[in-house]
């Protein structure tokens, strides 16, 4: 099922904490640069897809413009660091604030749009930001991109080894999941679900559409920007092609859809499936075939399991006991 208000319970919490602790230990076991790097990439995409899911799953608008927020996060912290020597740790919040504002505006203006109209509006918004990133060369150096100088040190989120990025990425993912859970348990969560289920009924119960959607969009955008800052600090080079480009928006949505739109952990599971497949096929087969795999994966998932892997698993879980009962009767 798509997001329902979360029920309290110690079991999921304990399980979540266990997984979190196990993930903390990963860098002690995985020391190979390729695999740890892959793991960090998975964490980042998991965070991105989880953030996307707050507007895509909870608020019900399938966005194809989230690369804009990712780019805003990456460029804000990087430019603040390069131009004003402000640490990306602070730039993180500056980028989050700007993206949050942009998300609020986008949420407000796309409020009444449904289905394909919403998708096209977010797509256009993403392209606007991309065109700005490519062409405002005085600020962004355009397609040449920006390099973060080596040796900025931990105070500037720049580390020599990969391990710190693993921990930051893990923190980022934990934050986005925690925010998702908090929203689900809050007033806002109930309102968003009510609006998604039936907007007219929700409004007549006193739910204010504008507030809810703007807030959800802003939170989603802010978290996406955090991941952008993280990406910039991790790769230490950004350009429009790797941050604001349409393909990035597609991939964010793709990861969430494969895992399960509207499920709490689906986007993270999606990243665990999609990113390794993508990275490994890219390494073995090259960029074109890797993206072909993405295309096929996207088609197959949306046709066969529109609620993603998690949705399909829930469906299976729902069927199993029934089948056992049936066989007992037979």
């Amino acid at each position: 099922m798509r997001f329902r208000p979360a029920q309290e319970g110690w079991l999921p919490l304990a399980a979540g904490l266990t997984v979190f602790i196990l993930l903390l230990l990963v860098p002690l076991v995985v020391t190979d640069v390729f695999w740890l790097g892959l793991g960090i990439t998975v964490l980042m995409w998991a965070a991105l897809a989880t953030a996307w899911n707050i507007s895509g799953g909870l608020a019900g608008g399938l966005s194809l413009g989230h690369a804009a927020f990712f780019g805003i996060g990456a460029y804000t912290s990087t430019l603040l660091y390069l131009r004003l020597d402000i640490s990306p740790w602070i730039g993180l919040f500056a980028g989050g604030a700007i993206a949050g504002l942009a998300g609020a505006v986008l949420g407000a203006i796309t409020l009444r749009l449904r289905g394909p109209f919403f998708v096209l509006a977010t797509l256009a918004f993403g392209i606007v930001i991309h065109i700005i990133a490519v062409n405002w060369r005085d600020l962004t150096r355009g397609s040449a991109g920006l390099v973060l100088p080596f040796g900025g040190g931990p105070a500037n989120m720049l580390f020599a080894g990969l391990e710190p990025y693993w921990y930051i990425g893990l923190g980022l993912l934990a934050l986005t999941i925690a925010v998702t859970l908090a929203i689900q348990r809050s007033r806002l969560g109930y309102y968003l679900i009510a609006l998604r289920e039936d907007e007219d009924a929700a409004r007549c119960l006193g739910v204010r559409v504008v507030q809810c959607k703007v807030l959800a969009s802003a939170i989603s955008a802010m978290l996406t920007a955090f991941a952008g800052t993280f990406y910039a600090a991790y790769i230490q080079y950004i350009d429009p092609a790797s941050t604001t480009q349409f393909e990035i928006s597609v991939q964010i949505a793709l990861v969430a859809i494969v895992g399960g739109v509207g499920t709490t952990l689906g986007p993270a599971v999606g990243a665990l499936i999609v990113i390794p497949i993508g990275e490994i096929s890219r390494a073995w087969l090259g960029g074109g075939p890797a993206l072909m795999v993405y295309g096929v994966l996207l088609i197959v998932i949306v046709l066969a399991a529109p609620r993603g892997v998690i949705g399909a698993l829930e469906w299976l879980a729902g069927r199993l006991p029934r089948r056992q009962k049936a066989s007992r009767h037979a």
Binding site: I299, V302, L303
Partner: peptide
């Protein structure tokens, strides 16, 4: 089919054909 299918199936086809 659900909205997510309608929007993303052709997007998937686009990615597939391009690549």
């Amino acid at each position: 089919a659900p909205e997510v299918t309608v929007v993303f199936a052709t997007l998937g086809l686009s990615i597939l054909l391009q690549n």
